[in-house]
Amino acid sequence: MTWIINNLDLIWGLTLEHIRLSIPPIVLGFLISIPLGWLAYRFKLTRGILLTLAGLLYTIPSLAMFVLLPPLIGIPFLSELNITIALTLYAVAIMARSVADALGSVDPAIRQSATAVGFGGWRRFWTVDFPLAGPVVLAGLRVAAVSTVSLVTVGILIGVQSLGYLFTNGFQRRILEEIFAGVVMTVIVALVIDRALVLLGRMLMPWTTVAKQKAPAPALEGAPA
């Protein structure tokens, strides 16, 4: 425990840095995946192309991605931008599929009713389809957020400071506590962001707490199918 007590400032500073690095990919990933998810939901052709691309992108290991991206898009290798773009791509790969699935889960009868009472395409999307798709979108967003927080740590290998610093530094100096502190703090940051997303979801979609009996287990991992 002594190492942790003596280095609380370092741990806290890195935690804040970690949060700062985690948020842009989550937010950007979410924003980008809405139009892409819609395209994947709406047209058969774009569905095949987008979901296949997302699947392929998702398969590439993160360390390889950090090395592959810079020469392909002309950004510096040892940079925060590299991490942000790579993690945004992963987030889009997860969320584009869940947005597509979410839009597909909206009851067609509701969509037809909205059209029948005179909603245009744009207004119907934002006021009917998207809010109703919300719970499934949120499930995807939570998966993307938690995995982004955990992936930020790999960035230390290309010199981007985060809680991952405690891993490499602790390993080099053989301080078990330091690595342990890094792992625990990463998990805590992930859980806090996850909780915040759930609460945000409850605020924005108050009806989901009422209709709880059909809540799917969002936390399943498995087939990219």
Binding site: V143, V146, S147, V149, S150, L151, T153, V154, L157, L163, G164, L166, F167, T168, G170, F171, R174, L176, I179, F180, G182, V183, T186, V187, A190, L191, D194, A217, A219, L220, E221
Partner: peptide
């Protein structure tokens, strides 16, 4: 099982490897 897979998702793999190696 649901709880386990949820909690495990947050675990940073790189840190886990280094932790186990030191252990």
């Amino acid at each position: 099982a649901v709880g386990l897979s949820g909690a495990a998702r947050a675990l940073p793999s790189f840190g886990l490897i280094l932790l186990l190696v030191l252990l």
